[in-house]
Design a protein around this nucleic acid. Structure first.
Length: 723
DNA sequence: GTAGGGTTAG
């Protein structure tokens, strides 16, 4: 209001000084633009005022419109002073659009090679680090060297961080070792660098080196080291660090309390975190936030929520922590509910909040919600951020819309390894193996270095498409060419690949030679393959190993029971039935959600909660008799409980996805697709049921279950194989 | 005037 008055009374006779005062007190972008217009019309149009305008935009906000405005004003200054370029570089490097730092750098270099001094480099390196833009990093390193800046400790530290965050920890270490007297920041950067690359034990060793070198750790380093202890699950070392802090009289401030709580949480010891928290006379915002994310990490969202609700003062970060807590703990609906509440309270989310919210949408899996959040993201200026777009790719893929996922991917001005991996994985999830593999090759042509997650996607795709040789080639290139050590998941993909191709001997060979103990997933692959390919003996072996790891695993019990029944080993069958009646304690209840006209309806097996329940069961009867005419026979092999065959036939018809699809048939808009999300795996009977419905009723059905998508139309499913 | 600490996408 005051500003508007000032604007209204402003005349062409404003002095330079008055403009400066106005600029300093300006609080919105539109005010800055109004003043800008007045300056241009006045006779005090000068570079000094334009510079001041750039600086004012920098202090205003980091929203993309303000950043673009600052850049455009800057470009109107003919010979910008170096200190101004540096201020802008610094602001951009800290903003959510760090790539604009490199954009400005390239502009500056084209205009004049010497508008950069040593103060320009820390922000440049920071931007490179945030973007993992390694080739730019090398170029900037070269330039710093040419200009003789490599002895500047600020630039040295920036380079160490750059190499470390671009995954070149050895190069970072070489630079660090060259420093004659690394200060606390340099030590912290290299220790943190090891952590960023997952080498937590090395980080702890380096901390010992630091203490031996006589350098004095400060509280920031202690926080970094405690975080390494948490990741390394080394609670013992963590406690010794705490002793060190006390012995050396370091203050235990809020940040340190936070780091301690995080360390305990990562070690699964929330009771120790709680002890610290309860002992605090004043509970700082960030400490409570750490408690929330600590509880949430262990799935204890109720405890997290109690802390959250008790907090008197809340900022957007603790809201984000609670939202991501729900999202990560498989309570995506709660996450979205809280996000809506946050908006109602007019608390402004940041990019990181949006990542959790988008991830929650992915897990809910409904396209309507996905589109809503995409619109929100675009309208609120998050749409340009790389990480947000990466999350959107995954979201659309998981909500069944591969076309939209692809659209987001192709429209991204800049892509990183996560973007490519997300898109590859999207194709793989949807059973589109060739597209996944082609994209992988395109990625390599564009010189993007694949990582472990990228390979999970392509290997999975190869497995489901039966591309054994291609899979083997990729696996060996991962190890030999890309120097990525395979994890249990990679071995899991390869075992599955061999199993699906009926190369069971190869699968077993791999299981025996891999450096990990096989897990539930690996035994499960082998077991299903044996069942399909009629290998009873091996199947029994795999099922037994699986049951040792997870005594209540229903699939394994069914397989075993079938094998025994075939061999008429009734005693063994009886034993299994007995152990089946034990289970059910921790078993997740199956449910299916169907999205109809932007609304979500949830069904459980045989439930009658839906208000159109009668209609739904009527439809189900009609559908079943229609399908029987084209050869549908309910298959009961997925029914685990001990029932008479006729009862089982009834029960399999009441599977939640069947109720969901019938509701879809009643209520969907004409020509629209029926989209179902199931929390567990869809059974074989439901799979063929969907295929037949799609043929008989001429409707497209998309089912997303725990493992993959099933796109059914005209009686065919794109996933081709079922198991 | 320059570097490191609470929520973070595959």
């Amino acid at each position: 209001m005051a500003m508007d008055m000032a604007m209204a009374t402003m005349s062409h006779t404003h002095t330079h000084h008055q403009f400066q005062t106005l600029l300093s007190s300006s609080t919105t972008l539109s005010h800055l633009k109004q003043i800008h217009a007045q300056i241009l019309h006045s006779n005090c149009n000068s570079n000094t005022l334009l510079s001041k305008l750039v600086l004012s935009s920098c202090t205003l906000s980091s929203s993309s419109s303000t950043l673009h405005y600052a850049l455009s004003v800057f470009s109107q200054i003919p010979n910008p002073p170096t200190h101004l370029s540096n201020q802008l570089l610094r602001h951009l490097s800290r903003s959510p659009l760090p790539d604009k730092t490199l954009f400005l750098y390239h502009n500056l270099r084209t205009i004049n090679a010497f508008t950069l001094d040593r103060f320009s480099f820390p922000p440049l390196l920071k931007a490179v680090s945030k973007l993992s833009a390694f080739s730019h990093g090398l170029e900037i390193h070269g330039l710093a060297s040419k200009l003789g800046f490599l002895s500047d400790p600020f630039i040295q530290t920036g380079l160490i961080a750059m190499y470390a965050l671009c995954g070149r920890i050895m190069d970072a270490r070489l630079l660090f070792d060259k420093m004659s007297h690394p200060d606390a920041v340099a030590w912290n950067t290299i220790i943190d660098g090891y952590c960023q690359n997952g080498h937590y034990d090395d980080a702890l060793r380096l901390f010992e080196d630091m203490k031996n070198s006589g350098a004095k750790p400060d509280s920031v380093i202690i926080c970094t080291v405690l975080s390494a202890c948490g990741h390394a699950r080394n609670i013992k070392y963590g406690r010794s660090v705490l002793e060190f802090v006390k012995d050396n009289g370091l203050a235990i401030d809020s940040y340190l309390q936070t780091a301690l709580i995080n360390m305990y949480a990562n070690c699964g010891a929330m009771e120790l975190a709680r002890e610290i928290y309860d002992g605090l006379s004043s509970k700082h915002l960030i400490v409570s936030t750490a408690m929330i994310s600590g509880y949430a990490k262990l799935g204890m969202t109720k405890d997290a929520r109690v802390i959250f609700d008790q907090m008197i003062e809340k900022d957007f970060i603790c809201w984000s922590a609670m939202i991501s807590g729900y999202s990560e703990s498989d309570q995506p609906q709660e996450a979205l509910k809280l996000f809506n509440e946050m908006l109602r309270k007019r608390i402004v989310p940041d990019q990181i909040t949006m990542l959790s919210v988008i991830s929650a949408c992915s897990n809910v899996g409904t396209l309507g919600q996905a589109k809503w959040i995409h619109t929100y993201v675009d309208r609120n200026g998050f749409g340009r951020a790389l990480s947000v777009n990466n999350a959107l790719i995954d979201m659309y893929a998981k909500c069944g819309n591969l076309v939209k996922a692809r659209e987001v991917f192709e429209n991204m001005p800049r892509k990183n390894v996560i973007s490519w991996s997300s898109m590859i994985n999207a194709f793989a999830m949807h059973g589109n193996a060739n597209s996944a593999i082609n994209l992988f090759h395109r990625m390599k042509e564009e010189n993007i270095e694949p990582n472990g997650v990228t390979f999970i996607g392509v290997l999975y795709a190869c497995g489901h498409a039966g591309l054994v040789e291609e899979g083997q080639k990729l696996f060996s290139s991962m190890v030999n060419e890309h120097r990525i050590s395979p994890t249990r998941e990679h071995y899991g993909c390869m075992v599955d690949l061999y199993c699906r191709a009926n190369l069971l001997r190869k699968a077993i060979e791999l299981i025996e030679t891999m450096p990990f103990a096989p897990n539930v997933i690996i035994w499960g692959s082998l077991m299903s393959a044996c069942q399909i390919h009629g290998e009873a003996e091996l199947g029994e072996f795999a099922a037994k190993r699986l049951l040792e790891l997870e005594p209540g695993h229903d699939g394994a019990l069914v397989v075993l029971s079938n094998i025994y029944a075939k061999e008429r080993r009734w005693n063994d069958v009886g034993l299994i039935r007995k152990s089946m009646s034990y289970k059910g304690v921790s078993k997740e209840k199956a449910c299916s959600r169907v999205e109809i006209n932007n609304e979500v309806h949830t069904f459980m097996m045989a439930d009658r909660y839906h208000k159109q329940s009668d209609e739904i069961y009527q439809k189900l009867d009609e559908v079943v008799s229609q399908l029987k005419l084209v050869g549908y026979k309910p298959s009961t092999s997925s029914i685990l409980i001990d029932l008479e065959e006729e009862d089982k036939k009834e029960l399999v018809l009441w599977h939640s996805e069947k109720l969901a699809v019938c509701y879809g048939l009643i209520s969907r808009r004409k020509e629209s697709c029926i989209h179902i999300v199931k929390n567990l795996r869809i059974c074989e009977d439901c799979h063929s049921f969907m295929k037949l419905i799609s043929k008989v009723y001429q409707v497209e059905i998309v089912v997303r279950d725990r493992t993959r998508f099933h796109h059914c139309s005209s009686g065919v499913c794109s996933c081709k194989d079922y198991w």
